[in-house]
Design a protein around this nucleic acid. Structure first.
Length: 619
DNA sequence: ATAGGGTTAG
């Protein structure tokens, strides 16, 4: 029987341990049975202590046992995975034995976790500067200790630099690897994609001698990361053809791609596929589904998935809150947010962005203000985005004085989002004076903001100030400000069709043109006339390349009427905001053709039915 | 006897 560990009653040392009676019981059991002398049992015990946040207790136990790397590595691992990965560095420095490749691996993982914290904007855990220092330090330690050639350490170093966003460092580290295995190449593919160079990632991926499902998944995620969702879905099709196993991570990325594109049919197929493969509904998969359904305008289904989930975290709740907000269901959004609070989920900065957006859409000014004020209670410091939301909240509701007072009381320099919100509010409420003021401020920060110029042009147009419109056009020309080309997409039979303003390149353009004529004929019978004022002044945030009847959403709408059965809703996704004329036009189409039309624009959804829109003409 | 790459909300 090995000697028992002598300890004072741990509860007197660590009051917090009193709550964890099972740990004390476990400790006692290990002591009495003598198993604490077994390195593997000790390691497991240390790991469970560290994982349950009883670090001080772990530190107390560890030095009293014979030093083994196994035990110390267990602690390192637990620290690296824990809430404060920085602690692994101190533990590494204090190792009583020379570190092995396991120790280095855990150290590198700790540095990667710090980088992730910094990237997620949690400076309390780690600042960006510190993350860089720690990364270099961990990499240096690996080299110094002679473990830099270990494949596990190598892949860790690559993902660490990827998490830091330092592609150059990742490239340099990758170049040092004589024979990178599939794991290291995949880590490099991910690092390149995370750094924005997806094409380089694709080249590396194409050159891989063998690819497993993780490699495919990394490449698909890379496309999604930079918003190239069409290519992500094409690659997923290739992956299916190649017969590679499809895991949950792949489906999550594919769902994100569907969400970006508004590809509801593809998203539904993924949902079905996951079920047919007997995959359990994990938090991540469920959250991705909620997000996908929301962003495809199928908010009812999104909520059904949400309600059916066995486990939900802050991502899940925030995704649902945000989904209700973007679908214009402000009251429900606020209710769900309150449910989240009651469920004991701590809202974070993103959650507040979501609920403030919902309040703003629904004109719930006082409720939104109360949410903003409650941030303090949750220890969430307002970001510039939250200030932007508040200005939008007051501004949309017509409380422009409150918006301005709010800006003046900001503890930081107002950023472009704040002025943009004020500018938009000025447009909604026809306040040319205020709009000019906001634009001046905005352009002082961002002189080539295309949306800002277009907004000001809209303000002038809506107050019939043609000179002002021409001046803005002149300014844009002089500065070479280019508007983002507008496009609309529509999914038919799982294929996403893309339309640009005035483009005639669709294979079925002849039919589309005939349908446009028919649409215009039937709308004229209803008394509709195109808003020529707005045509003239190009209120649309997209290049005016043809008559107003050729704005991209009208092309998509015409194609939808041709290609989709009558009982199917027409869903259109736009990359910019819908213009007033197209909004009026679509309302009428929904009535005259008796169709439900769902349009997602840059900010929100419009659900058209029977001549009305869910936004109440308020966007 | 400890370890690797890809995955969720703005």
């Amino acid at each position: 029987m090995p000697p028992l560990l002598r300890l004072r009653d741990p509860t007197t040392l660590l009051p917090s341990l009193a709550a964890a009676s099972h740990l004390r019981a476990l400790h006692a059991h290990l002591l009495v049975s003598g198993r604490l002398a077994s390195p593997s049992h000790l390691a497991a015990f240390l790991a469970s202590l560290a994982a349950s946040n009883h670090l001080a207790y772990a530190r107390l136990v560890l030095p009293r046992r014979p030093a083994t790397l196994l035990a110390h590595n267990a602690l390192l691992r637990a620290l690296a995975r824990g809430p404060r990965p920085g602690l692994a560095f101190a533990a590494f420095r204090d190792l009583p034995l020379p570190p092995d490749h396991y120790s280095l691996n855990f150290l590198v993982r700790a540095a990667a976790a710090l980088a992730a914290s910094a990237a997620e904007g949690r400076p309390a855990v780690c600042t960006e500067v510190n993350a860089k220092l720690q990364a270099v330090s961990a990499h240096g330690a690996a080299v110094r200790c002679g473990h830099a050639a270990d494949p596990h350490v190598q892949s860790g170093v690559l993902s660490m630099y990827a998490a830091l966003g330092d592609v150059a460092a990742a490239r340099a580290a990758f170049a040092e690897i004589a024979c990178p295995d599939v794991v290291c190449v995949t880590a490099m593919v991910a690092a390149l994609a995370a750094g924005g160079d997806v094409d380089a990632a694709r080249d590396l991926f194409d050159g891989m001698p063998q690819r497993d499902h993780v490699a495919w998944s990394a490449m698909i995620a890379g496309y999604v990361h930079v918003g190239r969702s069409r290519e992500a879905l094409m690659l997923f099709d290739e992956m299916l053809s190649a017969g590679t196993t499809v895991g949950e991570a792949t489906l999550v990325s594919v769902l994100t791609a569907c969400a970006q594109m508004g590809a509801l049919d593809r998203g539904k197929w993924v949902h079905w596929y996951a079920g047919s493969r007997g995959m359990q509904m994990s938090v991540k998969l469920g959250t991705a589904l909620v997000d996908m359904y929301s962003k495809c305008g199928a908010v009812v289904t999104a909520m059904e998935v949400f309600e059916s989930m066995a486990e939900r975290n802050v991502y899940t709740w925030t995704s649902a809150v945000s989904g209700l907000a973007m679908n214009g269901m402000g009251t429900e959004c606020l209710q769900l947010f309150k449910r989240m609070e009651s469920a004991g989920i701590q809202p974070n900065g993103v959650s507040f962005v979501a609920v403030l957006g919902g309040c703003s859409m629904a004109g719930l000014v006082d409720e939104g203000r109360a949410c903003f004020d409650s941030m303090d209670k949750y220890g969430v410091d307002p970001w510039k985005e939250h200030y932007g939301c508040m200005v939008d909240l007051y501004g949309r509701a017509g409380r422009l004085d409150d918006a301005i007072n709010f800006i003046n009381a900001m503890p930081m320099e107002p950023h472009e989002g704040v002025w943009g919100a004020l500018l938009n509010a000025s447009r909604i409420h026809n306040r040319v004076d205020l709009g000019k003021y906001a634009l001046d401020k905005l352009l002082a920060i961002e002189s080539e903001n295309d949306a800002a110029h277009v907004l000001l042009s809209n303000i002038y147009a809506e107050s019939q100030n043609w000179k002002g419109v021409c001046r803005v056009r002149g300014m844009m020309k002089a500065k070479g400000v280019k508007k983002v080309p507008g496009w609309s997409t529509i999914e038919v039979d799982g294929k996403v069709h893309e339309f640009f303003a005035g483009s005639k390149s669709h294979p079925r353009y002849n039919e589309i043109e005939l349908m446009l004529v028919e649409m215009n004929r039937r709308l004229r019978l209803q008394g509709y006339t195109a808003n020529t004022r707005e045509v003239l002044f190009d209120i649309e945030e997209e290049e005016k390349e043809g008559a107003i009847s050729l704005h991209s959403e009208k092309l998509a709408l015409a194609f939808g009427l041709i290609a989709l059965p009558e009982d199917v809703e027409i869903r259109i996704v736009k990359n910019v905001r819908v213009c007033r004329d197209c909004h009026d036009y679509t309302k009428l189409i929904s009535k005259v053709f008796n169709r439900e039309i769902v349009m997602r624009d840059r900010n929100r959804f419009h659900h058209f039915k029977g001549g009305e829109c869910s936004c109440g003409d308020y966007w």
